[in-house]
Nucleic acid binder design. Structure first.
Lengths: 217, 217
DNA sequence: GCTGCTCTATTTGTATACAAAATTTAACGT
DNA sequence: ACGTTAAATTTTGTATACAAATAGAGCAGC
């Protein structure tokens, strides 16, 4: 049986990621404890862990609230993701096996087919988002750098909370899928400069799509 | 008065960073608690916090040990630092004020003077290392990206623990100081590509100096 | 001598109790 | 009516108590 603290951590985490208690809501230790039928101790541990990941803010003697982000945060995050995921491509390309390339190609195909179907947005977009995450996650895994993976993971929370994928325009979606395909082609050709460049552009394009203008001075 | 948990956290942290209890030593909660005259609760919180930062490893029901790193970890870390600090230079250059440039120049001068004096290594190297950290930290601060700073900070622990600066050769030290000077010149000229390129080379040079050959396949 | 087992002792995980701090509420004076 | 101060309540921080899990010592069997 898993530790209670871990269970609590996961519950609060998914609750935040699903936006179920957003809006800088206060997270009172005892309330959470009684609502789960446990003591404050594991709740406390879970909250501290979430604080370390940046999903909640804690102030001394004043408790925890779910963290709040603004446009500037999103800009920072996509900036860093573009750098780090591009680097992941660079590392992954010379290590990529034929099977891994094929795996990525299959995801590309799935996403392209999904984009063509005329399902309602409510079912199509989450399916696309899920595959998008698998695609990016796979490349990060292929980079074989544990720390790189950890750094990116902490950055990814915020966009998920803000559910950015909802605002993608059809043209942007097409461009995004084309980027994916091009990244795989570059990796297949063993061209890490190509692959990492496209990945950089891909993430920055997502940022511009979500935030509007690239850099309002 | 600050929280006990914070005090404990800082104590264990500096103990690890000074290498006072390295070697994957076990950190038993009760032992630490009685040695500090407090209860297990704040010790536990401090250990979890250190675990989140990667300074200790905790296994369920098996407690915490100070984390252990190998050459592969160092390679990963310097790789990521080269990417992230280079990006910091890119962001910092267009934002740099005259006063900030002068501050960096002064540190360069101090380090150059320190390198020329004939003090014994035991006093000279720590002084150089301290200024080196200020130099890099200032540029990161100038980048004005909170998250970038946080990411780099978590990466820096390990090299400090391993006290890498001890192995620098005189020639490498000279090259390193020259890099610093060149970075400042590039920032002064407003040339962010130049600045970030030199920073990238600077960190990778440090990696090669410490790890020997650049990339043994 | 070595391997595997049981039982004990240590150590972690969780619950509860109490103290300190902060927030809310209420009372009071102007 | 307003602001200020002082209780009262809530909530966090720490200590202690107990349960569950792990590690280690000692011993049986080969």
């Amino acid at each position: 049986m898993a530790k209670i603290a871990t269970t609590v951590y996961e519950q609060i985490r998914t609750a935040i990621l699903n936006g179920e208690l957003s809006n800088s809501e206060r997270l009172v230790e005892e309330d959470l404890a009684v609502s789960m039928g446990i003591s404050r101790t594991p709740v406390r541990e879970a909250l501290r862990r979430l604080a370390a990941e940046g999903l909640v803010d804690v102030s001394p003697n004043r408790g925890a609230r779910v963290a709040e982000w603004d446009v500037h945060d999103l800009r920072e995050i996509f900036d860093l993701r573009s750098i780090l995921e591009s680097h992941a491509c660079e590392l992954a390309t010379p290590r990529a096996s034929a099977a891994e390339i094929e795996f990525l190609e299959n995801i590309c195909t799935e996403m392209e087919e999904l984009a063509e179907t005329d399902l309602s947005s409510e079912t199509r977009l989450p399916a696309l988002a899920a595959r998008n995450r698998i695609f990016h996650g796979k490349i990060i895994e292929m980079s074989n750098s544990t720390r790189l993976g950890l750094l990116i993971e902490t950055l990814i929370h915020v966009p998920i909370v803000m559910q950015t994928y909802k605002v993608y325009s059809p043209e942007a979606l097409q461009r995004s899928l084309h980027h994916h395909r091009e990244i795989v082609n570059a990796m297949k050709a063993g061209d890490e400069v190509w692959a990492s460049s496209v990945m950089r552009a891909h993430v920055l394009a997502a940022r511009e799509e979500i935030l509007g203008q690239p850099d309002p001075a």
